[in-house]
Design a protein around this nucleic acid. Structure first.
Lengths: 147, 147
DNA sequence: AATAAAGCGGACAAAAAAGTCCAAATTAGG
DNA sequence: CCTAATTTGGACTTTTTTGTCCGCTTTATT
């Protein structure tokens, strides 16, 4: 349950990318989502290695979703950035009880954690895009859902 | 939603204290709960100022629960350690969207956050103690609930 | 009164997270 | 072939978190 700024940046960038529906340079996404460009540039390889982003080097290159946004879960994205164990241990941090039932806080937290992880697993990036209609700039909203 | 190690340490120490049912030196709690003593010593004033702990200086002194464990909510404890805004902003970290409905992640997270905060608000320290019966050392369990 | 045991506060050190910068590799376009 | 645009990886700095240390004050016990 260690969700850092990196996770947020990744989600914001991916959401922007999914909203556009086509490849874009990472810098462009960083600018649009108000993320430090150099920091996002370090997250891109993590997402690429996890099979979430497809990258294209060189002029005219950029990043694209490696799979349709419907198939990219928040859980998967979080694990790519924070590591696979991030959602296992309790939100009250790691040692000395990471996922250990003997931890005094385990019985209190674990049911809640399980529900949270289930929610993250079943919520896709597409769902995030769908739920977040920007309040401003509602230019062409008719075919935005079905590109 | 910024839950750090400090929160965990505070909860572990308070749980140990509540389990004992009587005042104890902070060092003793740290040793029992396997917490860095010097670190816990820095958390004590935060909890004392928040009206969660009552401290007694000098020889024979120590810390005690300022109020019955039934009336101490996890939410209150967390806010004392992390600051009052810790449970307001989204788990994907602070800026640029702390509790701001315009954040792209807000509609996804906020319902979940609300439920989590409600859970923390209605779960008391006594509840934690009750749910966490130590696997070992089950000496006198009969009147442990009603001191 | 002296001593020992305790909380308090400030300064400091170590580790992790957040952020920046730059050179190298890659690739399209002129 | 050359240049511009892009990702990649490493080194680096800054900030925050975590942890330690020490001296001060307070207070019960002797």
């Amino acid at each position: 349950m260690r969700l850092t700024l990196s996770t947020k940046y990744a989600l914001l960038a991916l959401e922007e990318l999914a909203r556009r529906g086509r490849p874009a340079p990472a810098r462009e996404l960083a600018a649009a989502a108000d993320i430090p460009p150099a920091y996002l540039a370090k997250l891109v390889p993590l997402l690429a290695r996890a099979g979430i982003l497809a990258t294209q080097r060189g002029r005219g290159g950029g990043v694209a979703l490696a799979r349709p946004a419907q198939t990219l879960s928040l859980k998967e994205i979080i694990e790519a950035v924070e590591g696979p164990e991030a959602l296992q241990d309790c939100p009250f941090e790691l040692a000395p009880c990471a996922g250990d039932p003997r931890c005094p806080l385990y019985p209190v937290w674990d049911p809640l954690r399980a529900r949270l992880v289930a929610f993250l697993a079943q919520t896709s990036l597409a769902e995030v895009v769908r739920r977040t209609q920007r309040p401003k700039e509602e230019k062409d909203e008719r075919n935005a859902e079905r590109p």
